[in-house]
Nucleic acid binder design. Structure first.
Lengths: 345, 345
DNA sequence: GCTTGGATTTCAAGCGCTTGAATTCCCTGT
DNA sequence: ACAGGGAATTCAAGCGCTTGAAATCCAAGC
C-alpha cells in the first residue's frame, strides 16, 4: 500500500496502534485469554484476569472497535436521527445518552440538515451498523418507514406515524388540557387556543383544548384562532384577537415560539401579560425559560421519552418482535410568570 | 454463538446481510473484481464495471463499512466534539457536513452533556477510529490537548488554546471593532461595552472595543461595564448603566444573550431601543434573529470556519505535520433593528 | 501409579472487505 | 504458428478481534 494512503501520525511518523496481541505478549499469554479476560467472560482464572487488566491499563490498550464489531455479530450501537438545530432534540439526545449507557448500548448521532435529508441521515446510521434506530420527529413517509423497519427495529419519538412502528410520545391533548385546567384554576373562563394547521400534533393539541374546555363547562367560550409554528404566526394571531370584539383573558399557544410572538405583540399593543392576558406555551423550550420571557409552558419530559425509547429498542433487539406499541407519556405544566389570575371585570 | 446474542431482524428472523460475495456470484465474477469495480480503481473493464454497478443496485448491496475499514487502513472519518445545546455548534455542524463531503470524509458526532465530559466525548470519537478530530469550543486543558494531538491531528474551532494545535477562529477584536464603527457611523460617541470576565475570548473582544474607540478618537468615552454570558448579567449591566450619571447612547454586549438582557431591562425602564440606546450583540444567534428581538449582531461566519477546519484536518492527514497554524477569519456585522442613529441632544 | 474430569489455556477458523502478486486471456508482431 | 506483453481477472493473505473446539494442566479417586 502506498505510504500516502495511510494517515500520518501527528508527528509525521506512522501510527502503530496497540493490538490485543501486544497485551498478550506483555504477560506471556495468548490473545484468546486476553480477549476473554477483557470482555469478562468465563474461562480465565482470577489471577489471569488481574494480570490482563493490569497490563492493558499500563500499556493504555484500547480495543479496536472496528475489528471487534466485525468479529462479534453485534455492534450494540443505536442510531439516532435528529435535527441538530432543535433544542428539544438536544435535550432528548442528552437523555438518550444516559438511558443507553445504562443498558450497555452506544449511540451514534446523525443529523438532518439543509443539504442532508432524512434518507441520507439514516443511511449514515446504517453504515455504522446500528442495530436499531431512534428517529426524533421524522417527516419521512409511512412507506419509507415501513421499508426501514423491515431492516431493523425502528422507534419514533414524538409523533404518531401511521406505520406499524413503535412510537414513544407525550400526550399532547393532556398537555393542553393541563394548561387549560391551570388557567381555569386562576379563574379564567375566556380562554383561546392558537392553532397550527392540520398536522397530527396540531390536531391532537386542538382536540385536547376542546375537550378540556368542555369538561370545565366552557364550551361556549371555545375560540380557536389560526396561528402557526413561529413567532410571526403568534403575532398575527395576537392582532386577530386584538381586533375581535372581546379579548380573551388567556391564550394557549401551539408552541413556545408562537407564544412569544403573542406575548410580544400584546406588549407592544399595551396589553399587559399576565395582567390582562395570560399566555401558555408548549415545549418548555430554553426560550420559555429566559428570564424576560418567563413563559408558562408544557414540558414533554424528554427524560422519560428517551428512557422509554431506549427500552423499546433494546427489547426489540433482545426479545424479538411483537406487535408495534405506542407509549404515551403524560407531560406536565411548568408554571412561570406569563400566567396569572384572571382580571376580574 | 447463542441465538440471543445475535440481533433479531424486525420480523424476528435472522438478518442475512448481503455480502460482496453475493454480488460477485450474481454476475459470475470474483469478489475481487467487484471490490475493485465498486471502489473505482483501475483493473476491471468498462463492461465489468457496468455489470457490477447494475447488480449491486438491483440487489441493494451496501458495503459493510466495518469490514471495509478494517481492511483498508483508513477510515476517512472526522470526529467532531460539540455541545449539542449550542445553536452556534449546530450551525457549524451543518457546515462541517457540507465541507467534509466535498473532501470525501465522513463525520461522526459526539456531544458533551451533563453526564458526559469532554474526555468521554473524545474517547467515543477515537473508538470510531476517526483519523482526526475537530473540537468545537473545547474547555479541555492544554496538557490534555497536547496529549490528544500526539495521537492524531486535532483542530480547534473558536478559541485560542495555548497548545501547539491548529486553531480556526473568528477575529473577535475585529468583530467588536465593526460594531463600534457601525455605531460611530450612526453618530454615536458615547458607546459602552459590556464585558464577560477574563476568558481569552472576552479579553479579545474587550481589546477590540478599546482599540476601535481609540481609532475613532473616542478614548475619553471608553466605558467597560462588568457583565457576563447570560441574560441576567445583561440586565444587571443595564441597571448599572441606568444608575450611572449619564446613559450611553449605545452599548456593545459580549454576546446575544447578554444583549437581550440589556434590551429587556432598558425597555422595562422605559428607555427606548434603539431610540435612546442602540444595542449590538455578538454571535448572530437564532435569538438575535427573532422578529421581536431583532438584534444587530456580529456573525462569526460558521460556514467559513467549518470549511477551514475541514481543510486543515484533511491537510494534516494527507500531507503530514508542519507547525501548528492559526487561521483567523474576519466576522461581519449583521445590522438589524436594535441600532439606530444617535439621539442628538 | 494411572485414569478421570473440571478448570484453564490455546488453536484456528472466521467476520466481510482490500490489494499486492500471480494467473489467465487475448491480441500483436515476426 | 508461437513467444511476448498488456489488460483483466483471480488468488490468497491479511486487517484485529472473537469463540467453538481442541489441547493442556493438575488434583482427586480407585
Amino acid at each position: 500500500m502506498a505510504t500516502r494512503d495511510q494517515p500520518l501520525d501527528a508527528d509525521g511518523t506512522r501510527a502503530r496502534r496497540l493490538r490485543l496481541e501486544d497485551v498478550a505478549a506483555a504477560i506471556g499469554m495468548s490473545p484468546s485469554s486476553v480477549s476473554l479476560a477483557l470482555s469478562d467472560r468465563p474461562g480465565p482464572s482470577e489471577e489471569t484476569r488481574r494480570r490482563v487488566r493490569e497490563a492493558a491499563d499500563r500499556l493504555g490498550y484500547r480495543p479496536d472497535r472496528t475489528a471487534r464489531l466485525l468479529a462479534r455479530r453485534r455492534t450494540r450501537l443505536l442510531g439516532v436521527m435528529l435535527d441538530i438545530r432543535s433544542p428539544f432534540h438536544a435535550e432528548l439526545v442528552e437523555d438518550l445518552h444516559q438511558a443507553s449507557e445504562g443498558r450497555g448500548y452506544d449511540l451514534v448521532l446523525s443529523t438532518v440538515t439543509a443539504g442532508r435529508d432524512e434518507r441520507r441521515a439514516v443511511d449514515a446510521l446504517l453504515d455504522f451498523r446500528c442495530e436499531a434506530v431512534i428517529l426524533l420527529g421524522p417527516a419521512v413517509s409511512v412507506s419509507q418507514l415501513g421499508a426501514l423497519s423491515r431492516q431493523l427495529p425502528v422507534v419514533v419519538i414524538g409523533k404518531q406515524t401511521g406505520a406499524d412502528i413503535d412510537v414513544v410520545r407525550a400526550a399532547d391533548d393532556l398537555g393542553v388540557a393541563q394548561a387549560v385546567d391551570h388557567l381555569v384554576g386562576l379563574r379564567h373562563r375566556d380562554i383561546a387556543f392558537v392553532d397550527a394547521g392540520k398536522g397530527p400534533i396540531a390536531s391532537l393539541r386542538r382536540r385536547g383544548y376542546r375537550t378540556a374546555m368542555r369538561r370545565n363547562g366552557l364550551t361556549g367560550s371555545v375560540r380557536v384562532v389560526p396561528g402557526g409554528l413561529d413567532e410571526r404566526a403568534g403575532a398575527q394571531a395576537a392582532h386577530a384577537l386584538l381586533e375581535s370584539p372581546e379579548l380573551p383573558t388567556a391564550v394557549v399557544a401551539y408552541n413556545d415560539m408562537c407564544a412569544v410572538g403573542l406575548q410580544d405583540a400584546f406588549s407592544r399593543a399595551g396589553v399587559g401579560v399576565p395582567e390582562q392576558v395570560s399566555i401558555v406555551g408548549y415545549d418548555n423550550s430554553t426560550l420559555a425559560r429566559l428570564a424576560h420571557i418567563d413563559l408558562t409552558s408544557v414540558d414533554q419530559d424528554a427524560e422519560q421519552l428517551a428512557a422509554h425509547a431506549v427500552q423499546v429498542a433494546a427489547d426489540r433487539l433482545e426479545n424479538g418482535r411483537g406487535a408495534a406499541e405506542e407509549f404515551v407519556l403524560t407531560p406536565h405544566l411548568v408554571v412561570r410568570g406569563s400566567t396569572g389570575p384572571a382580571a376580574t371585570a
